[in-house]
Design a protein around this nucleic acid. Sequence first.
DNA 1: GTTAGCACTCGCTTAGGTAGAGTGCTAATT
DNA 2: AATTAGCACTCTACCTAAGCGAGTGCTAAC
Lengths: 341, 341
Amino acid sequence: MVEMDDRKLKILQAIISNYMATGEPVGSRTISKYTDLNLSSATIRNEMSDLEDMGYIIQPHTSAGRIPSDKGYRLYVDTMLQKKDREVDEMKELLVDKADRLETVLKQVAKLLAENTNYTTMVSKPRYVHKKVKFIQLTLVSDTQMLVVVVIDGNIVKNRFINLSEPIGQDELPQMNFLLNTALNGLDLTEINMALIHKMKEQAGQYSEIIGMILDEIAAAVSEEDDYLYTSGATNILKYPELSDKEMATKLLTTFEEKAGIGSLMNLNNDEEHGIQVYIGEESNVEAMKDCSVVTATYKIEEGVYGKIGIVGPKRMDYQKVVNTLENTMKQLDDIFKNKK
Amino acid sequence: MVEMDDRKLKILQAIISNYMATGEPVGSRTISKYTDLNLSSATIRNEMSDLEDMGYIIQPHTSAGRIPSDKGYRLYVDTMLQKKDREVDEMKELLVDKADRLETVLKQVAKLLAENTNYTTMVSKPRYVHKKVKFIQLTLVSDTQMLVVVVIDGNIVKNRFINLSEPIGQDELPQMNFLLNTALNGLDLTEINMALIHKMKEQAGQYSEIIGMILDEIAAAVSEEDDYLYTSGATNILKYPELSDKEMATKLLTTFEEKAGIGSLMNLNNDEEHGIQVYIGEESNVEAMKDCSVVTATYKIEEGVYGKIGIVGPKRMDYQKVVNTLENTMKQLDDIFKNKK
DNA sequence: GTTAGCACTCGCTTAGGTAGAGTGCTAATT
DNA sequence: AATTAGCACTCTACCTAAGCGAGTGCTAAC
């Protein structure tokens, strides 16, 4: 078994850089000419043969140059990346009005990142797992229509209309309002159970039917999951020949459109995963992305509330740039959310 | 100049049907064999030559069969379509909970249509042009945070949070509420002008600053345009070779993703356009769709409130099926919205 | 350990050649 | 006068062979 040494590492790095830049397999002569190693192509060939035995590079066919294998990229990302903290062309400062809604901010971030990197961006909005009712407000919009506003954790506001079969007196409304708030405040969905509902209906007396309807709507509003994943720049993948053949492109674009099967990547599973993660090829465990790499970063809105940003590109993506850009973006997002607090 | 006659029409129809089914240019022998005209290929050839002179069909190259021109499709759509009211495989009934939000219904419709037709669906949510304030509700969520709920035309609800620099007494809130509702009710954005704002601030006395902030938020909430266009099945276009070469596909998919430049198609311009419209090729006036056809239909939520559904496919799309499916869908939507009322 | 040299491999491009589908025209047929 | 059979012609799609060039692996010399 051959050992890795410094020279091999340099050659591997040269192969990877070159392949990233051109997308073409890299031959021994190219390395010999364009590095400062001052070795002949024959020597490089021997080294390359070793690197191939070790599994870091691959030959697409007998008489072609070499391209990095997943293992090669992995080594590159793990050891070579952090060494040089190359300058990134500064990404446009996020022009975010602080009053803006979270969704707008996230969509804007996704768009900017996609434009800046020429890869595809996915952003997940944080989901509050144990959503607690913070505040309920009933109002009559007309004689027969009631508006229920529910504020839940994280200041998420949900609205529901209820059509009334018969008018309610304006006086009864504050009572019901009070009843609901006292009973439900601070509870999450699992705690709004049958017993509680029954008890509340009893207290409501003649309005028990309406209270029932309202409770239904509140439950629906709280449990409602709206879209929590955005993508931007999906068509960017068509810029990379290795991803744009019909079958591959269809799979990828469908995944982006339907947001199916990327939960494992874009949900936060355990707290270790904070920071920036790189998934090369099959590491992402997403079938459609087995020929892609994905870089994800976690952002924090407030304590315990996290979302993720993912950038999808070809395996030969510019990891350095993507990682730097993401770090930069995280900083900006931090600022925004801190000021918002 | 040659005249159109019944036989030519039949031949044209045969060419179009055949081309729609196969996507391949149609030759004279095919027509001669597979129609009940009992004419030799030579005769068909002469007729086809005439049809080409008249502009209804095109020869991709000298020794190929013919394909329909835009003019040919137009004639087909205008005159031949309505004749046979062919059965469509019944589309799954829309499983719509009446309490569901409009957005959910529309997204579901888009998805079903895309799946059913194998083309791409675009849906526009109606936009209320002169949005009038119907109702305003202020509530304190905490000492320093106020929630402003604004209900506008069409029961659209907007929420905004305002951070207060100093607490407000609970007593003042109803006053401000009353003031805002009396002053703004029934007004649209253009009517909330400087003079009015000035007057209100005066009335508000010591709370003029807060009233100013609230008015800002109301203006922002009312004028805010959220996404009003959904697409589904964008990747379906990749199923049609004539649309899936790289350049074309990129243009189309980008258009679907960014929803740029399709406003002219998906907005309601004048009231004549109700019902079903077919745009062939450049008729849609959307650059990216010049090799596509688009079929649009208008749905009605309530008097004066309309939205549009558009189906985008290759020019040889199955117009009959698309039109029938859309008609069917419109009926279902009508029912849903009627019951919701 | 490194390098020059060489035979060899294999994909890519080019050129030529063929088959097949389809046409347009002309002359014969109905 | 309309239809049809027949035929020469056109053009694409497909195949094959040849040659190029980039690249390799191996051997022998440095």
